[in-house]
Design a protein around this nucleic acid. Structure first.
Lengths: 212, 212
DNA sequence: CAATAATTTGGACAACCGTCAAGACGGCTG
DNA sequence: CAGCCGTCTTGACGGTTGTCCAAATTATTG
């Protein structure tokens, strides 16, 4: 068939194929998004394909049509999660015109994230832990970690810039610090500790001036 | 029976009962220790009672005799893990007579832990993530987290003391920082990144003087 | 030593898991 | 309209899971 096709026909065929691929991939993302709901609710260990299907508009067979197996699905979930997550604070960083403005914008976003997206974030910590056992997750997880580190670094350098300084520590240390604080606050928040969020905000507010 | 017992007989009965309890509890710990082997190898999500039993000297029935269910077993594992973990750096803290000595002792222990006990530590991160989903784990996990924070704080205050200073940040922030760094290094180490351990040591070596 | 209790065994159970495949559906093309 | 193709449904499969239990074994007591 391909040998008989003219140049134009080939181009049409290729276009049709990429269109199909895009549609296929869009569907994958749709399914991954639906899966994230259940994963965020139950966690990796307790989530089965059937449970995912039941909490969504799809049947369990569809997932096997679009994903080669369970790991493939969850890898797709992780990658999709990344896209949503990594730019969370960028608007604050680009619009803030002073240290105070940046601080308050960052803190507000931090509190809102902890309050409204706790389920999605506990899933992130769950999957990052899974990556320590499951090699198939490692590449994506390490990549997301790098992206999150870069995100924190953008905040820190902008904060330093607004004070005509430079960050006093490395990107890795800064990310470790904020990630550790956030993780701890998240756990406390999920355990119905009402001081979790204010404590985190206080801590970050105190910390920001000392890192630059 | 109790009404007819004399005071002495009562005391004997009580003693016998506590002895039985101790024996019972010692067996529980034995089983928990065996379970930790498999948990550290496979992670919470992939570990079944039968797998635990197969990798140990016990049959799967025994676990149900000593634990009411799977969660009960794993809670016991977590609590037992704590006892082993929380005093890891205490010898270094008490024996070090100078900042350098403390630094080198701490770094050496850090590297050894990452190298030799990676499996047990990834399990800790796994179970801490599970606690975000499973309320039954939260109490013990939060308690261990507090103990680890105190452990780090002992190191920091001793380090500060040896330089006639005081730590510049809160216990929570310090623990978040070291925990975050360790977690990241552990993931990289498990992903066969050979720079994971030296990078961690460099980072900590640079960080220690700045926090006091 | 007998009898009573504690411990251990190994199999049975129903429920659930990931995977798969045969067929139904609906739109598009020739 | 007939036939094809991508999409989706449904049910079945072999295997594993947590749990439970009756019987066997061991320890403890009178």
């Amino acid at each position: 068939m391909a040998r008989q096709a003219t140049g134009a026909a080939q181009r049409v065929a290729v276009a049709a194929e990429t269109l199909r691929d895009e549609k296929f991939n869009a569907r994958r993302v749709e399914l991954a998004e639906a899966a994230l709901e259940t994963l965020g609710e139950l966690g990796f260990a307790r989530t089965s394909l059937r449970e995912i299907a039941q909490n969504s508009a799809f049947t369990h067979g569809v997932f096997h049509y679009y994903f080669s197996d369970k790991l493939d699905l969850i890898c797709c979930c992780v990658r999709h999660y990344k896209a949503k997550c990594v730019t969370r604070y960028d608007e604050v960083v680009t619009t803030a015109q002073s240290r105070d403005e940046l601080t308050e914008g960052f803190l507000a976003k931090l509190a809102a994230t902890l309050q409204d997206e706790a389920r999605m974030h506990r899933l992130w910590y769950d999957l990052r832990s899974q990556a320590m056992f499951e090699p198939a997750f490692r590449k994506d997880v390490l990549e997301i970690d790098k992206s999150l580190e870069a995100m924190i670094w953008r905040i820190a350098t902008r904060y330093a810039e607004l004070g005509n300084r430079k960050p006093a520590s490395s990107p890795a240390a800064l990310y470790a610090l904020f990630d550790g604080l956030f993780q701890s606050a998240l756990l406390r928040h999920l355990a119905s500790d009402e001081k979790a969020i204010p404590d985190l905000l206080d801590e970050v507010r105190r910390l920001l001036p000392t890192i630059c």
